[in-house]
Design a protein around this nucleic acid. Sequence first.
DNA 1: TCTGGGGTCCTAGGACCC
DNA 2: TCTGGGGTCCTAGGACCC
Length: 419
Amino acid sequence: MFGLVDCNNFYASCERVFRPDLEGKPIAILSNNDGCVIARSGEAKLLGLPMGAPAFKYEQFFKEKKIHVFSSNYPLYGDMSNRVMNILADMAPEIEIYSIDEAFLKYTNCDYLDLQSHAVEMRKRVVKGTGIPVSVGFAETKALSKVANKISKKFTDKTGGVYIIDSDEKRIKALKWTKIEDVWGVGGKLTKRFKLIGVHTAYDFTQLTDEYVRNQMSVVEVRLKKELEGKPMLDLDEVKRKKNIAITRSFDKIYIDYEQIKERIVTFAVTCSEKLRKQQSCCNSLLVFVKTSRHRKDDSQYYNSVVMQLPYPTSSSIELAKFATQGLKKIFRKGYRYKKAGVIVMDFVPEDQYQMSLFENANPKHKQLMKAIDLINHTIGSDKIKLAGQDLQKTWKMKQEKLSPRYTTKLNEIIDIKS
DNA sequence: TCTGGGGTCCTAGGACCC
DNA sequence: TCTGGGGTCCTAGGACCC
């Protein structure tokens, strides 16, 4: 059996753990730059606050409906996520951490186990250990466990947050209840096509023939269909090293000067290299892009990107900042009003086994230098050591006006019980 | 004034090989 | 009149996920 555990309204729940006064109150979390709404508590959803709502258009709404608004606090959410995952990993034989708030579990040869009470116990332990409420769904395949999870969440009163699809009757009932657009792996485009041919529920989908699905769509949809029929096609994915790492940001304001954008690009490249070193990879190429704001219709629009092939694989901040700057020079055009830029590193090799080249190789001193910098930044605070190309004054060029404390990762920001 | 960020997988088509 | 067959690798773009 596969299980899917999903944290309920995860970001909002994280904020609420340290603000028990917000129990039962509507909460909204904003994206980077306090741009738009990316997470809502159940109460906020009921008030009709849509996902993706631009914050500046909803200020009045927040006030009227007394919605508590937070800037996103990733140090907090990331740490809370780790705590949840640790508890799950303790209880389940196998686990795949699927996203910051979701994990697939796998149970083989566990007939002795009463899954129902096991799942109830799991919910209990997570909420006791972290304060985060979770929903649990079990079924024979990953796709069905997603469906089961959805049901457990939708009918919490009846299910207590746990639902198990363990018979064909239950499976069919669940599929008939599931709208096609809510199936895992069916997005906007597929929904449109499905509806054209009269497929409105997950059950309708399973009534098509494999051949039809294969011919009209692709192997991806065939796999999905079999999964919904209870035939496992997808196994747990082991968490491997990432294949790409991207740092892309909208700016706090419009940038016009090359120098300003260069500073951002260098900072992005440095963050990419830190993440690369963390997973012990080197990259062989790097992409830089810049763009104007698509929301400003009067501005002339510009987007451009360039892929830089590196002469040798590296994870050195100095090297990647250098190549990223070279890339920026190729695509920067004077006269545009820039709002966003990014650096993406690609084509990884493990750092301990890359091919040396005949004429040009990485400076061996960099490796030790980076090690020292990482150690210092890790022990006495990130950004203590920077490249000269980075802005030394500001550490974080982002609008975050409603940021909560980093309760669990900063000693001087821990929760105040009595003052 | 103000509208997010970070991933994966698959497919079709081009370029190349023998 | 008539011009083969079978591969691999790479890339861009699309679709999806959270």
